[in-house]
Nucleic acid binder design. Structure first.
Length: 261
DNA sequence: ATGGCTCGTGAAACGAGA
């Protein structure tokens, strides 16, 4: 099973790029963030023509998430339980025996301390959602743009100041708290050290200087982690004309073991 | 060097992004 997450920074100007990527990579599921359009404006027909059903939560101008699935699915949540903020930042589906949460965690650099508190509140609610799913013995993946660089290795030297919301101690603590539930960081489980960036700023020739960040992640519940085979950012997408500032993170899983009884 | 790009909005700057 092949899963991917990709912050596309607006789906409409990126539609051809995403369709080409789907045709080439043929993932089972692609989780998109920052679609930046209302649900009705999402190019559902184009993705359906490519063989993917769409679960979409959009809004005007900002945010928005969509999950594309090659296999039949049901939507289990169109917002993150416990989050009062109406921003379109979470959609969750069930397919192939997995619950797949697609999230766009608030950046937290705008809106002062109130904006930062929104980020931490979302992370708290995500922790509670993961805990609920673990208690229900559910196999799940939480994938998306977490807007957190978990460790200094995940931030190119000088790319961010120490006060940035992506590296603030409370942001990193929120990430560790998720991991301490027993979740596996797919990328780091297979590649424990070194840069594995998923984002390069459009500005200051960040891509050319490889001044990137690792902020897009997939967390796996324990039984899913046992099936982990590969995890890698697709850096080639950052070379394309008019790219997103993020690249896809691609994870492959082996088939689930036969059920015991 | 707090700017540098790239979006959406809506028709000019501006906010958000990270």
């Amino acid at each position: 099973m092949k899963l991917a997450t990709w912050n596309v920074n607006s789906v409409r100007p990126r539609l051809e790029l995403v369709l080409e990527w789907l045709a080439r990579e043929q993932p089972d599921v692609l989780m998109l963030q920052e679609i930046k359009c209302e649900t009705e404006q999402f190019p559902t027909q184009a993705f359906e023509a490519a063989g993917y059903g769409c679960a979409v939560v959009g809004q005007k101008t900002y945010n928005g998430v969509a999950t594309l699935s090659h296999t039949p699915f049901e939507i289990t949540n169109a917002s993150l339980p416990g989050v009062a903020d109406p921003a379109a930042r979470y959609i969750e589906i069930r397919t192939q025996g997995l619950l797949l949460g697609n999230l766009y965690l608030p950046n937290g650099n705008s809106g002062g301390e109130e904006g930062y508190a929104t980020k931490l509140a979302f992370a708290d609610a995500l922790h509670d959602r993961a805990q609920t799913l673990l208690q229900a013995n559910t196999d799940f993946v939480l994938a998306g743009d977490y807007n957190i660089c978990p460790t200094p290795e995940d931030c190119a030297p000088g790319a961010l100041g120490p006060e940035d919301a992506l590296v603030r101690p409370q942001s990193r603590a929120a990430w560790r708290r998720l991991r301490w539930l027993g979740l596996t960081d797919a990328l780091r489980a297979l590649h424990p050290h070194g840069a594995a960036y998923t984002f390069w700023d459009y500005q200051a020739r960040a891509w050319e200087r490889d001044s990137g960040l690792r902020i897009d992640h997939m967390l796996l519940s324990p039984r899913v982690a046992e099936r982990l085979r590969t995890a890698a950012p697709d850096r080639e997408e950052r070379e394309k004309p008019r790219p997103s500032d993020h690249v896809p993170l691609v994870v492959t899983l082996s088939e689930p073991p036969p059920r015991s009884h």
